[in-house]
């Protein structure tokens, strides 16, 4: 990926993460759990967490052809 693409991808992904963690979206999942089930908010946060890590991997994780400086 070229540097400009990485910059745009970084900005886009940070904005996406911020939106996913914004109050209105968070409130959708902020419900008391049904008996015996894992709280929805807990699961939602875990999913966003994984999405964010996966996004970082897609942007930065793949081996680039540049030599480590």
């Amino acid at each position: 990926m070229s540097k400009s693409k990485i910059v745009v991808a970084s900005i886009t992904f940070t904005l996406l993460s911020v939106v996913l963690m914004s109050k209105p979206l968070l409130m959708i999942f902020n419900q008391p759990p049904e008996s015996g089930s894992v709280p929805a908010l807990f699961i939602y946060v875990l999913i966003v967490w994984l999405i964010t890590a996966a996004g970082s991997y897609l942007i930065f994780g793949r081996k680039s052809d540049t030599k480590p400086g």
Partner: peptide, 30 residues
């Protein structure tokens, strides 16, 4: 397992409160 743990916690009001954000906490989240 998780199911057992959360089920037992869900039966106690003081604990099921921990699974959601209270109004002040949601304001301070970001």
């Amino acid at each position: 397992g998780f199911g057992d743990l959360f089920e037992k916690a869900g039966q106690r009001a003081d604990l099921s409160r921990l699974f959601t954000l209270q109004p002040q906490q949601s304001n301070e989240w970001f």
